[in-house]
Simulated assay, not measured.
Amino acid sequence: MTKTKILIIEDDAEISRLTAMYLEAEGFDTRIIDDGLAAQTAIKNYVPDLVILDLMLPGLSGIEICKQSRAFYCGPILILTACDDDVSEVSLLKLGADDFLTKPLKPHVLVARIEALMRRVTPTEVKQEKSKHSRLTIDLDRQTVTFDGAVLSLTGAEFEMLVLLNNSMGTPVSREDCCQALRGLEHDFNDRSIDMRISGLRKKIHDDQMPYKIITTVRNKGYMLLNG
């Protein structure tokens, strides 16, 4: 079985060493980059299944790496932040991150988040679905979406959110169901995270003005995809 490849972009040598050591003991293949300027080249050459990205890096910040890499990298990006970093979860989601953890890292939590993110992007998990929406084409093998014939640039979280809504088209999906499906965890719900992903999807399918015609909000029930 091919190992999941994880690129660790972190300039703290001790944190990156311990993180890589723990992940390799759990069966992952890892590579470490400690310079922000080398990050994009490393992503292109190593082609990781997942990126662990520190916000504070020499050369180029994690924020800029996240923004720029989304032009060519569709895999999950897990951000590492210090407790005093003045960057909100909303900002990270807008930049293209799929999840984040605060330092100091708890190894078992890190592995749980990685496994949850990888479940989202494993084609076999959602292989059976085809798009039910007349204006959407969802390619589950390639993890791509077209809307009215144009390819959408979605984060991994936005893609899986859209698949979830598509699977239940015409039926409201609760925020709790969204949190559980996206994170693979039954705890740590965050309504704001779900709302931001919905907001991102609406903008990309030009449905960000009320009344919403494609992804509607159903009061006290959640979100629903309409075939309109």
Results as ranks from 00 to 15, higher is better:
80 L>T: 01
80 L>I: 05
81 T>C: 12
84 D>E: 10
84 D>A: 12
86 D>G: 05
86 D>M: 08
88 S>F: 06
90 V>I: 13
90 V>S: 15
94 K>N: 09
95 L>F: 09
95 L>S: 07
96 G>H: 02
96 G>D: 01
97 A>K: 01
97 A>G: 08
98 D>P: 07
98 D>M: 08
98 D>W: 06
100 F>D: 03
103 K>D: 08
105 L>W: 06
106 K>Y: 07
107 P>D: 03
108 H>E: 10
113 R>C: 04
114 I>A: 03
116 A>Y: 00
117 L>P: 01
118 M>H: 04
118 M>F: 05
118 M>W: 06
118 M>L: 12
123 P>C: 02
123 P>M: 03
124 T>H: 14
124 T>V: 12
126 V>Y: 00
127 K>P: 00
127 K>Q: 09
128 Q>A: 15
128 Q>I: 06
129 E>D: 13
129 E>F: 13
129 E>H: 14
129 E>A: 15
130 K>V: 09
130 K>A: 12
130 K>F: 05
130 K>H: 08
130 K>T: 12
130 K>Q: 12
131 S>M: 07
133 H>T: 04
133 H>G: 04
134 S>P: 11
134 S>R: 15
135 R>N: 10
135 R>A: 10
136 L>V: 03
136 L>A: 01
137 T>R: 15
138 I>T: 05
138 I>A: 08
141 D>M: 14
141 D>C: 07
142 R>E: 08
144 T>F: 04
144 T>N: 08
145 V>P: 01
146 T>D: 10
148 D>H: 10
149 G>M: 07
149 G>Y: 06
149 G>L: 05
149 G>C: 04
153 S>R: 13
153 S>M: 09
155 T>Y: 01
155 T>E: 02
156 G>M: 02
158 E>I: 04
159 F>H: 04
162 L>P: 00
162 L>H: 00
162 L>W: 00
163 V>F: 04
164 L>Q: 07
164 L>I: 03
166 N>Q: 07
167 N>I: 07
168 S>A: 14
172 P>W: 04
173 V>T: 08
174 S>P: 05
175 R>G: 09
176 E>H: 12
176 E>M: 07
178 C>P: 01
180 Q>V: 14
181 A>Q: 10
182 L>Y: 00
183 R>A: 01
184 G>D: 05
184 G>P: 05
185 L>A: 08
186 E>R: 15
187 H>V: 10
189 F>A: 13
